[in-house]
Computed example of a mutant assay.
Amino acid sequence: MRTTPVYYYSSASGLVRSFAERLDRPVFNLAERQHRMSRVDGPWVLLTPSYKTGNENNDTIPEAVRRFLRDPTNRRRMVGVMGSGNRNFGRHYQMACRQIAERSGRPVLFEFEIAGTPWDVTECRRILAELDAALAAGHDVQLG
């Protein structure tokens, strides 16, 4: 059974990277040019933080994520979105994840705050394992 990879963006703080690396599956950091410029070869999941600096005109989606999603193959093969956020952002909490899910028609699979807790990691692993099984069984997972 194929293990669905997770492509993520992590800033210099490394909080999202720390979470992604605990998922026990292939993970690729979109902050690294080689991954950001790559094309996926099958179903994959996006893990993105949301950022908001207080300026209403600033977007919450990291530019590296935008660049990766500009590739039509990458967009088509994305099967779900997960988000990291900070509740201090108020109504902007998880906005990047939710906007990408809405625009792409893909589900939000999981959301967690900041670097996540051990429970978050365990729960996210369970959800991703279910996704792997559904994909392997050929269930109707939107690939565009």
Score class of each variant (00 low, 15 high):
R76K: 15
E102M: 01
V79K: 08
R98G: 02
N88G: 10
I100P: 02
A96R: 01
M78F: 01
R98I: 00
P72K: 05
R77C: 13
F89Y: 11
P72A: 03
R87K: 14
Y93L: 03
R98S: 10
M82C: 07
M82R: 05
H92P: 09
G83M: 02
A96C: 04
R70D: 15
P72E: 08
R76F: 05
R70G: 14
Y93P: 03
Y93R: 05
M82L: 12
R98Q: 09
G83A: 03
F89K: 00
S84C: 10
N74S: 05
G90S: 12
P72R: 11
M82F: 04
G85K: 03
C97Y: 06
Q94G: 03
G85Y: 05
G85H: 02
M82D: 07
I100M: 10
G85R: 00
R87N: 09
R76D: 12
R75E: 11
D71E: 12
N88K: 09
G90T: 07
T73D: 15
A101W: 03
Y93K: 04
R70L: 14
R98N: 12
H92G: 11
Y93H: 11
G83S: 11
V81N: 02
P72Y: 00
C97Q: 07
R77F: 14
R87M: 12
A101N: 06
R75D: 06
P72I: 03
V79M: 07
R76P: 00
R77M: 15
V81Y: 04
I100W: 05
H92E: 14
D71T: 08
P72S: 01
R91T: 06
Y93M: 04
C97H: 10
G80K: 02
C97A: 14
R75Q: 13
R75A: 13
N88T: 07
R75I: 04
C97D: 04
R91Y: 05
R75P: 10
G85W: 03
N86D: 11
G80L: 06
M95C: 00
V79I: 14
M78R: 04
R76Q: 12
R76I: 00
G80A: 10
V81A: 05
E102Y: 00
M82T: 04
T73M: 12
M82W: 06
G90V: 10
